[in-house]
Amino acid sequence: MSAVTIEAWIKALGKNHDELLAQGVHFKRPPKALYPDCDLVDMAPEVGISLTFWAETKRLETLFVTLKKSTPSTVEYKGELPAPYESEMTQSDVHALFGEPMESTGPIKMPQPMGQTGGWESYPLDPAIYPGKKVVFQYTAAMEVKTLVFTLIDKGHD
Rank of each mutant, 00 (worst) to 15 (best):
A8K: 13
I10C: 07
K11H: 14
L13I: 06
K15Q: 15
L21W: 00
A22P: 00
A22V: 00
V25A: 04
P31I: 01
A33S: 14
Y35N: 04
C38K: 09
D39R: 13
E46H: 15
E46C: 10
T52N: 11
T52E: 14
F53C: 02
W54Q: 13
A55Y: 07
E56K: 15
L60V: 03
L63R: 00
S70N: 10
S70Y: 10
P72T: 06
S73E: 15
S73W: 15
T74K: 09
V75Q: 15
E76G: 07
K78C: 12
G79S: 07
G79Y: 07
L81D: 05
A83E: 12
Y85G: 07
E86K: 13
E88P: 04
E88R: 14
D93S: 03
V94A: 06
H95I: 13
P101Q: 01
E103P: 02
P107C: 08
K109C: 09
M110H: 14
P113A: 05
M114I: 14
G119A: 08
G119E: 05
E121I: 01
S122G: 06
L125R: 07
L125H: 08
L125V: 08
D126E: 11
D126G: 07
A128R: 14
Y130F: 15
P131H: 04
K133W: 04
V135N: 02
F137H: 08
Q138C: 10
A141D: 10
A141C: 04
